[in-house]
Nucleic acid binder design. Structure first.
Lengths: 190, 190
DNA sequence: GTCTATAAGCAGATAGAC
DNA sequence: GTCTATCTGCTTATAGAC
């Protein structure tokens, strides 16, 4: 008498992401995930037998896939500048124009299981590496490109903290718009 | 038969700060505070009858006092540039050269009581306002000064996230060293 | 002011019916 | 695959001895 799934796997993951990203690993209770998804706690354990840690892990995997799509223009577009612009647009959207938090911030607090923190770390490296690679493709020397990529990451994360703390999301919008300026070489260097 | 306090109030607060800043409100258990301080949980409740929320509140108050001292050179020093440099040094120290987290980040996650979040918000405003005021004193137009102050805040918070996620604390050191460059006008504008 | 002991509730996780 | 019911341990918080 197996019932049909009451919610699609992909939709469920989006909902789990929305909780974990705002509350972090420790702050997220299975009851929160139950409430947001409409599934009873036991149903969540049926889908994720290894419990909360697995739920957090699949959430990070889902975020990783989303990032693959976000970074794709910056990586594949023949015109690097255009690719960076499109990636910046997708980033702004992913972070709800500054209203949402970043799992890389909230899921790396002390108390989070090491496996989850390591997963988050890997995502951050992928993101930063992609930005550095785009910067090099655009003509920046390797060391400058690496610096620029870390600077871009730092500014986006910082703008999200500023938005969460003060409510000011404008700076985030400006920061995302500034991404090409951070990663690409100036007119005289290109 | 009142025993003498087994730990000084100020020392105790420093220890409570060290836990809350890394684990956030939700992630911090009274047991963690008990372990770090050597006091039993009941003893903590004796000192803070209103419980965990009061503990978090006095922690933020303590951080606020520390910030008053950190910001003092930037506010009082006749030579603004020298003042900003000294404040930057103190900031670097407060954040353990990038190894420590910021309560303004970790204590504003969803799930934190609104009163605590509001307290954190007030601290952030004080800090940003002080930087904007120093920037104006140094000769920047008001709107530029405000922008620069938000930019400085954003970069420091972002550098701390970068350090926590990737383990790279170098960028934080560079960011703090860059503070005068962010807040003060260039040589040609001064 | 500190402690031991304990209450009351919530968390993560499991068993088994349908 | 979902549900109700339950177990176990941890969390916040309190009572009362010293």
């Amino acid at each position: 008498m197996a019932r049909p799934p009451s919610i699609d796997e992909a939709d469920l993951l989006d909902l789990l992401v929305s909780v974990f990203r705002e509350k972090g690993f420790d702050g997220t209770a299975i009851g929160d995930l139950s409430a947001v998804s409409g599934l009873q706690r036991a149903s969540l354990y049926h889908r994720f037998p290894d419990g909360k840690e697995q739920m957090a892990d699949v959430v990070l995997a889902k975020v990783g896939k989303r990032f693959l799509w976000i970074l794709e223009p910056m990586r594949e577009e023949g015109d690097v500048a255009k690719g960076v612009e499109e990636t910046a647009r997708r980033l702004g959207d992913f972070y709800g124009a500054g209203a949402l938090s970043c799992v890389l911030d909230t899921m790396t607090l002390a108390g989070t299981p090491e496996k989850i923190r390591e997963h988050a770390r890997a995502l951050a490296r992928t993101w930063i590496d992609a930005m550095a690679e785009a910067s090099r493709r655009a003509g920046r020397p390797a060391d400058e490109a690496t610096r620029a990529a870390k600077d871009a990451f730092l500014r986006i994360e910082g703008a999200l903290v500023l938005a969460r703390v003060t409510g000011d999301t404008e700076v985030f919008a400006e920061t995302v718009a500034l991404l090409p300026g951070i990663l690409l070489p100036g007119p005289e260097e290109g």
